[in-house]
C-alpha cells in the first residue's frame, strides 16, 4: 500500500470529512441506528452501496483523466441532490488540502474542468498523482465510506469507542472485497462503470437536509 492511502484515509487529513456523517445522523435521529448491532448493519449496507460507488470512481480516476465525463457519470449515479452536494463539498475541501500536499498539473486540470469535483474523483486523482494505484484509491474510498459514519456514531449516540472500532474492523474483509471489485471494473469506459444505488441513504440524505433547515444538526450530511 502506498503512503498516500494512509494520509487520505487518516481522520486527521484536513479534507473536511469530519462534518459529514454519511446519513448516520438522520438514521440515529429516527432511531434506525441506536446501538452497535444496528450500527453494524448500517455500515455494512453503506459500504456495499455508497462505499462501492465511491471505490469504483476513485479507482477509475487514478488513470482516467476525462474529468467532465467522470463527473457526469457519477452525477447520474447519485440521484439525491443532497448526496451530490455533500460529495462536492468534501471534494472541494480535499482539493484544497491536496493542492498543498501534491501540487500537480493533473490536479489543476481536474479543478479547471470541474471546480467542485466529487470526493471520490479527487481521491482517485490525488492517489494517482502521488504514485499510488487504483487499489490504493479504492481501498481508501471504501474505508472512508464507513470510518466517518462510525466516528459520527460515537459522538451522536455516545456508543463505546472500542466497540465501534471493533465493528469497523469486523468489516475488514468486506472493505477489501469492495475495493477488489472496484479495481476489476476501474478500466471500463466511464459510461460502463456500475452504479450501485442505495434508496435508504438517498431518502435519509434528503430528509436530513430538510431537518437541517428546521433544527440544529451537528453534521452537514
Amino acid at each position: 500500500m502506498h503512503t498516500v492511502a494512509l494520509v487520505l484515509s487518516d481522520s486527521r487529513f484536513p479534507g473536511g470529512g469530519h462534518v459529514h456523517s454519511g446519513g448516520l445522523e438522520e438514521a440515529a435521529a429516527r432511531g434506525l441506528v441506536s446501538d452497535i448491532r444496528s450500527l453494524g448493519l448500517f455500515l455494512a449496507g453503506r459500504l456495499r452501496t455508497a462505499g462501492e460507488l465511491a471505490a469504483i470512481f476513485a479507482a477509475a480516476s487514478v488513470k482516467c483523466h476525462e474529468w467532465s465525463t467522470l463527473d457526469e457519470e457519477l452525477d447520474a449515479r447519485t440521484p439525491s441532490p443532497a448526496q451530490r452536494e455533500a460529495s462536492r463539498a468534501q471534494g472541494r475541501a480535499t482539493v484544497r488540502a491536496g493542492r498543498r500536499a501534491w501540487p500537480s498539473p493533473v490536479l489543476d486540470s481536474l479543478v479547471q474542468a470541474t471546480p467542485r469535483p466529487h470526493h471520490a474523483i479527487v481521491l482517485g486523482a490525488l492517489t494517482g498523482i502521488a504514485g499510488g494505484s487504483s487499489a490504493d484509491a479504492a481501498l481508501t474510498a471504501a474505508y472512508l465510506s464507513v470510518s466517518g459514519p462510525a466516528s459520527a456514531a460515537i459522538r451522536l449516540l455516545g456508543l463505546d469507542p472500542f466497540a465501534v472500532n471493533a465493528q469497523v474492523t469486523r468489516l475488514g474483509e468486506a472493505i477489501q472485497a469492495v475495493a477488489d471489485r472496484a479495481v476489476s471494473v476501474a478500466g471500463l469506459p466511464p459510461a460502463d462503470l456500475p452504479g450501485p444505488g442505495a434508496p435508504g441513504l438517498d431518502l435519509l440524505a434528503e430528509a436530513h437536509v430538510r431537518h437541517h433547515k428546521e433544527e440544529v444538526r451537528l453534521f452537514a450530511s
Partner: peptide
C-alpha cells in the same frame, strides 16, 4: 450524449440495513 440516471440495486442479505431498504 449525457447520462441521466444509472442505478443498480441489489437485493440480498443487506435489505434490512437502514442504508439500503431499511
Amino acid at each position: 450524449e449525457r447520462p441521466v440516471l444509472s442505478q443498480r440495486l441489489e437485493i440480498d442479505s443487506l435489505i434490512a440495513s437502514p442504508a439500503v431498504l431499511a
